[in-house]
């Protein structure tokens, strides 16, 4: 049989549980703020992501334009100049990879893509607004074919092996899985 001590605790339990239920179920300014807080937070995250995407697109637009018109050397120079303001920015690495690839510079292109993807995994997400899934896939497919053939001819060449490791890294990231 519960004694007085137990009864007191049982009553306390019921009262606190009831209070908690009331608190959660009754629309309170705090609850509204909590709900609003979630919305704000989600929106804030999205806004930040979009702002970042827009900022990158706007900042690197001259590089993209020069690349599109085939002025690769000028594009690289512009990228170098931007690198003074935004050193280590993965978007620069990705654009550099694309330019170098267009110039058939496989090794530095692959290394540049690797730096970019390590810096920001969004580039290998097919659905991301920053996605470079298609172009990185092409790098990997073509790279494995070309560099793979060279490795067969020169199996002891450590630089080719390094590029193969980079290509496998990109291939693995494109394949997905947990990070």
């Amino acid at each position: 049989m519960p004694d007085r001590f137990d009864m007191l605790h049982l009553v306390g339990l019921l009262v606190v549980a009831g209070g908690l239920l009331l608190l959660v179920l009754t629309p309170q300014p705090e609850a509204g703020a909590m709900h609003g807080g979630r919305l704000d937070r989600a929106m804030e995250k999205q806004m930040l992501a979009r702002a970042r995407t827009d900022f990158l697109k706007q900042t690197y637009a001259p590089v993209v334009d020069l690349t599109a018109s085939g002025e690769y050397a000028a594009a690289l120079l512009k990228l170098k100049e931007l690198g003074r303001e935004y050193p280590g920015e993965p978007h620069g690495d990705i654009l550099r990879g694309e330019i170098l690839l267009a110039q058939q510079a496989w090794q530095p292109a692959t290394a540049s893509f690797v730096r970019g993807v390590k810096g920001n995994g969004d580039y290998v997400d097919a659905k991301s607004p920053l996605s470079r899934y298609e172009s990185i896939s092409r790098v990997v497919d073509e790279g494995l074919r070309q560099v793979g053939a060279q490795v067969k001819q020169h199996p002891d060449n450590s630089s080719l092996q390094e590029t193969m490791r980079d290509l496998y890294y990109l291939q693995s990231r494109l394949a997905g899985g947990c990070e």
């Binding site: 990997v140 490791r165 496998y168 291939q171 693995s172 494109l174 394949a175 997905g176 899985g177 947990c178 990070e179």
Partner: peptide, 13 residues
């Protein structure tokens, strides 16, 4: 199913 050592998802060498 992709049999191989390289380019596997969430794997390292």
């Amino acid at each position: 199913f992709r049999l191989g050592m390289y380019g596997q998802p969430g794997a390292h060498l």
